[in-house]
Structure formats: structure tokens, C-alpha cells
Design a protein around this nucleic acid. Structure first.
Length: 392
RNA sequence: UGUCCCAUGGUGUAAUGGCAGCACUCCGGUUUUUGGUACCGUCAGUCAAGGUUCGAGUCCUUGUGGGACAA
């Protein structure tokens, strides 16, 4: 009998994953991860890992599987949280949960599970595993509303090999129903939110552990800025145009009007509306850029501000990751994909251009708030082909 | 100093003498395994003192504060 170790989190999804595997006849064991002890800046003070551990144990008992726990908080701190601070410090906006999957759940945790003699490792992610062209596929979950493949966009073939996603073909509603029928103690437990294992935090407060507040100016950039003028496209080569279309605007050298003050540019991210403390406008102000060296936050009025909507983005060569190595593009090649730049975003038509320095991604429609440090993932329909960190 | 104009939530603005409304901000909530977005909701105002009127944000007087022109 094949042995599967399930990452039981104390939530409904991993509970049902374990239950289904058990019903399918696997030798199932639960393994609970402790990744975070600190509560600094946490909003849900009553929601600590102890509660989750208790729930996970109750679930294990309920479906009659052994369970143990493993403390990975050391790795979580160095490989997820430190990365988070360092990215914010550089003025970029990281995605800790993508890192958590790559570095913890499908790395350290996976190793632990294999040490315990597991043939497979399962999680409660809404995504599916397939096989094609002699490699594993990471497929979107069938519940289009819950699809979590985006969070696994950095996994490798080696990480995918022992993985099982028992609930990827189900709708959230069905998962809850299964949990209810089996009377699992997690059946009606609220879905988790916020940074996984840390929870919902007030980000500026959380970041203040490492990043000191520093007063700086909020500067409004007007949509009439010459920066936004259409260029004469006949004067440039195709590759020059590609670079221009995929480059961010540089606001630090153009005229802008000081409209307020902030406590540190590194606390802000592109597309952000709340927290600027500036009123009196007809339409809301959005952050359209930050500069941590000058400690400036650049804002623009309204959803349609040209600085907020861009045609393309760039991923550095060393940041490109192919979930499906067979699909890797050659230098000079261009291909169409379905792309998203954030969780739950409907897939966007885009063309990828592989160049020596990296990947240029040009969208059919302008994209709102393209953010450095976030992940871009490209799909072929359901099939997550690759991903990378947005450089700019 | 003379004349004129203005004063409404934190901000920007509406209201023939007849229930002070809208937008932005803030705060709270919903959605969301990242940040962010979106959606819903609450709080909050007629510069001060008198007067006219059934009734004043609105008209009159004075004061206070700001702006413009004049020298």
C-alpha cells in the first residue's frame, strides 16, 4: 500500500484531502507544520497555531489516521519572512505565499515527509496534476473561483513528482459538503486569509519590525505629463518598442506636485488606494509608483490614470521558471499565452518575447497595477507553463 | 487704510427662504491562502454673536478669519 503524507493545516481543505485519500485506499498520515510563533503585528490574536494543531489532531482522530507535527519555523523565517522584508526594503512587493510553497511546503516539508517514508505528499490546494510530453503538468483547479495553481507557479518537476492534490477536481461547496457528511470538525471553519501561517496582519505595523518609518513626500503625477505621450512608433525598431512598452515609467525625474506626506515609501505598493490620507479629489488617488531611494510615493487620480495601466512587463532571465521545461522558449522566439499577474485574476491574452536579457510580456489589454516583486504566471488554458518575478 | 469678494464634515464641493446632499479621506465590515483591488456600511458640517421671518446655510447688522483691487 502506498503511503501518503498529508499536510494537515487544521482547515477544511486539507481535512477533506486526507479523507478522500483514506477512502481511496492509501496509507494516510497527517503531518502538521508549525511555521510561525510570533504574533507581532498580527490582527487575529486569537488565531494561533495551537488552535490549528488542535483541529488537525481532531480531524486525524475523526478519520482515523496518525498525525505528528514538525517545526519548520526556522526555515520559514529565513526563507520566507526574511525575503519578504528584504523585498519591501528594496521597494518591491513580494508574494510570501508563492515562496512558502516553493521553499517550505514543497521543499523542507516534502523532505520531512519523504524521511517518514512517504511515497506521496498531498495538500489541500485547489489545483490538479496531469502528465503530458513525459512531464508533470500543474493544472488549474476545476473550481474557477478557488483555483490556487498561481500560488504553486514556482514548483519544479521534482517537487511536482510526489505531489497529490486530492481536492483539485472539486468545487469549494462540494468540499464543505463532504466535510459535513463525514462530520469533520473543520467542516464549517472559515477559510484562512492573509499570509499563510502568519495570518492577517497590518502590513505597515508588521514591516516596522525591520523597516523604520521615514517621513517622505507624496507626489501627484498628472495624466497630462509628457511622459505618457504616445511615441512615434515608426522611429523605433521592434525590439526597442518592446522594451519601451514593457518598461515602467520613471517618475523621479519629471514634474510632480507635492500633495501630502507618508511614513515610508517601502510601506506602499503600486495600485494601492488606501492609506494615503489625502482627500478632496473627485476620484480616488492610487499609488502609481514608489522610489525608496528618494523616499517618494507617486500618486495619480482615478482608475484610468495612464501611470496605473501598462501594456507590458519584464522578467529577468535568471527569474524565469518553467514548470514545464519542455515548453521553454529559445532566444528570439515569441509565443502567445494566457497570463495572470495576481491570484484570481481572469487569464489575460498576452505574447511572450524571449530575449537574451529576459522575457518581455506584452498584453492584449492594458493591465492595472503591474507590480515589481509579484509573480507573473503564464498558462496554456488550464496548464500552468511557467512563471517569473516581475522585475518592472 | 479705502472698496469689493469669500467663509458648509478631515479635504473638495452642492442646496428658487422650506428635510443640509455628493465625492474624496478616515474608521468598520464583506470578498480574497500574498501585497493590492473591488463591494457594503458608520462617523462627521453651515465661522461667532445678534436681528428679520411661521421657517435662515441662504436676507440684514457687527465681529473674526482668508482673498482681490486700490496706495
Amino acid at each position: 500500500m502506498k503511503k501518503v503524507i498529508v499536510g494537515l493545516s487544521g482547515g477544511v481543505d486539507s481535512s477533506v484531502a486526507a479523507l478522500l485519500l483514506k477512502e481511496q485506499g492509501y496509507d494516510v498520515e497527517g503531518l502538521f507544520m508549525v511555521n510561525w510563533h510570533d504574533r507581532t503585528g498580527t490582527l487575529t490574536s486569537n488565531c494561533t497555531w495551537e488552535d490549528d494543531w488542535l483541529l488537525a489532531q481532531m480531524v486525524a482522530k475523526s478519520i482515523d489516521i496518525p498525525i505528528s507535527k514538525v517545526d519548520l519555523s526556522e526555515d520559514y523565517r529565513t526563507r520566507v519572512v526574511d525575503y519578504m522584508f528584504s523585498e519591501y526594503e528594496k521597494g518591491r512587493t513580494p508574494n510570501p505565499d508563492v515562496l512558502c510553497n516553493r521553499e517550505i511546503k514543497f521543499d523542507v516539508f516534502l523532505e520531512e515527509a519523504l524521511k517518514l517514508g512517504a511515497d506521496y505528499v498531498a495538500t489541500g490546494h485547489y489545483c490538479r496534476k496531469g502528465e503530458k510530453d513525459e512531464e508533470y503538468q500543474l493544472l488549474a483547479g476545476l473550481d474557477g473561483n478557488k483555483d490556487q495553481s498561481y500560488f504553486l507557479c514556482q514548483l519544479t518537476q521534482q517537487q511536482l513528482a510526489p505531489a497529490l492534490f486530492p481536492i483539485g477536481h472539486l468545487e469549494k461547496r462540494e468540499v464543505r459538503e463532504i466535510a459535513e457528511k463525514a462530520a469533520l470538525p473543520t467542516a464549517s471553519r472559515k477559510d484562512s486569509q492573509g499570509i499563510c501561517f502568519v495570518g492577517k496582519v497590518d502590513l505597515p505595523t508588521f514591516l516596522q519590525q525591520k523597516l523604520q518609518p521615514r517621513k517622505g513626500n507624496v507626489i501627484e503625477i498628472f495624466p497630462t505629463q509628457h511622459l505618457f505621450n504616445e511615441i512615434d512608433r515608426s522611429k523605433f525598431s521592434k525590439d526597442e518598442l518592446l522594451k519601451l512598452d514593457c518598461a515602467p515609467y520613471d517618475y523621479s525625474k519629471v514634474f510632480g506636485k507635492k500633495v501630502g506626506e507618508h511614513n515610508g515609501a517601502h510601506y506602499y505598493t503600486v495600485g494601492q488606494r488606501k492609506g494615503l490620507n489625502i482627500g478632496g479629489y473627485k476620484e480616488p488617488l492610487f499609488v502609481i509608483g514608489t522610489n525608496v531611494d528618494r523616499n517618494s510615493v507617486f500618486v495619480g487620480e482615478g482608475h484610468e490614470h495612464p501611470g496605473l495601466n501598462r501594456k507590458g512587463l519584464f522578467v529577468k532571465q535568471e527569474e524565469i521558471h518553467w514548470v514545464r521545461p519542455s515548453q521553454k522558449m529559445e532566444i528570439g522566439q515569441e509565443r502567445s499565452f494566457d497570463v495572470r499577474i495576481r491570484y484570481r485574476q481572469p487569464l489575460q491574452k498576452a505574447t511572450l518575447f524571449q530575449r537574451e536579457e529576459g522575457l518581455y510580456i506584452l498584453f492584449a489589454e492594458k493591465q492595472r497595477a503591474i507590480t515589481a516583486g509579484q509573480f507573473v504566471a503564464w498558462y496554456n488554458g488550464d496548464d500552468l507553463i511557467g512563471s517569473g518575478v516581475i522585475d518592472a
